[in-house]
Simulated assay, not measured.
Amino acid sequence: MKYVDLDATIGAVSGVMSPLVYLERLPEFAGDLPEGARAFATDPGHYDFHGKWCVKDLKLARVLLEPGTEYRERGHLELMFRHNCFKHEEDLIIRYAGVLSLHWDGPANPFVIGDIGVVALDEVLPHDEGCSHEIACHNATISVITADLTATWIDAECDQKPSQPAV
């Protein structure tokens, strides 16, 4: 990641995740992002760790890759993330149109989606071809270069309810 720090030091606390530099720089390049990517990156809840639309703690559940129909066409990609019942009420679907590249980096097995762990944070940046989207998970990183992306939060049924504190 260029600006999001997955091992930051804030005050006397080290080893924390921080999107602060990214959020400070975002206004400088947000206008260079394609429309869908800009809407996703600048959503006020995107990096609100306590908010229900923060990507932190989501878990990748589905990957659909559709190649282009002609050799000059770029494919489409869909990533579906399941909610964390203790934090989210919705699942997130990210659809990438005009995918130039998809890269999976890390020790996790790319054929076993559950191996990548939960999302730590992500970063959307302008790219000559549209935008880049890097998603850091606990055991792998997914990087996509695409013409644009659309992020949609959809209602989800919670498998378990948050535990109530003992009285």
Rank of each mutant, 00 (worst) to 15 (best):
L60W: 11
V63I: 13
E66W: 02
Y71Q: 07
A39D: 11
W104T: 07
A120V: 08
C54I: 06
T42C: 14
L60Y: 11
E73T: 14
K2Q: 15
C131L: 03
F111P: 02
H133Q: 09
W104V: 12
L23M: 14
D43V: 05
E78I: 10
M1E: 06
I94F: 04
C85P: 03
T150Q: 07
L23T: 11
L58S: 06
E73R: 13
E157R: 11
C85W: 01
A136K: 09
F49H: 10
P67W: 03
C158D: 05
I93W: 04
L20D: 14
D43T: 03
A147N: 06
T146I: 10
S14W: 02
P162W: 01
P27G: 05
A156Y: 10
V4K: 07
F49T: 10
E73F: 14
L79Y: 11
L125H: 09
H138G: 04
G36C: 14
H76C: 10
E123Q: 06
H50C: 07
D57G: 05
T69E: 15
R25A: 11
I94W: 00
L121V: 08
H88R: 00
T141E: 09
G31D: 08
P165F: 02
I145M: 02
A37E: 01
L6T: 06
P162V: 02
I93Y: 05
G15E: 12
H133L: 09
L26I: 13
M17I: 15
P110E: 03
H88Q: 02
D122W: 04
L65E: 07
Y71L: 06
H88C: 11
G75K: 06
W53F: 11
F40R: 06
L100D: 13
A156V: 14
D155V: 10
W53T: 07
E134L: 03
D57Q: 09
T152W: 00
R62K: 14
L149Q: 04
S132P: 03
L58T: 14
F81D: 07
I94G: 10
A39N: 10
P19S: 13
A12M: 10
A151F: 11
K59T: 15
M80G: 04
G68T: 10
V144I: 15
T146L: 07
